[in-house]
């Protein structure tokens, strides 16, 4: 028998939560960025699972588009991180805390 939709969703939820924990816990912006990729992919998995369950390829289109957007986002995000590193010579996200009350 086939694997139920809910199993995929549970895996997706777990991966997403791992990504959340990464964002909250890690201080290296690169690792935080990776965690965000993890969360994106977890969502992609739900799209794929639903597409399969519904017998539709529409979910694939969403995944495809989110792949390209993720690529664009990574390009810009990494460029920003590099630029920050270039000016501040450090790579702890907690150093960037001037936005406080």
């Amino acid at each position: 028998m086939a694997v139920s939709l809910n199993s995929y969703l549970i895996v997706s939820a777990i991966l997403f939560s791992i990504g959340v924990i990464g964002v909250l816990v890690r201080r290296n912006p690169l690792v935080i960025f990776m965690s965000i990729e993890l969360m994106l992919n977890a969502v992609n998995l739900t799209f794929m699972a639903f597409a399969n369950a519904l017998g539709s390829v529409d979910g694939w289109v969403f995944v495809f588009i989110s792949l390209t957007v993720a690529a664009a986002e990574v390009v810009v995000g990494l460029a920003i991180i590099v630029a920050i590193f270039r000016t501040r010579k450090e790579i702890d996200i907690d150093e960037m805390n001037t936005l406080k009350g």
Partner: peptide
């Protein structure tokens, strides 16, 4: 953060 993440996963899994 860890607790929040675990609760999030647990709650979602529970629902599902």
């Amino acid at each position: 953060g860890v607790i929040a993440g675990i609760i999030f996963a647990a709650a979602a899994s529970f629902l599902l």
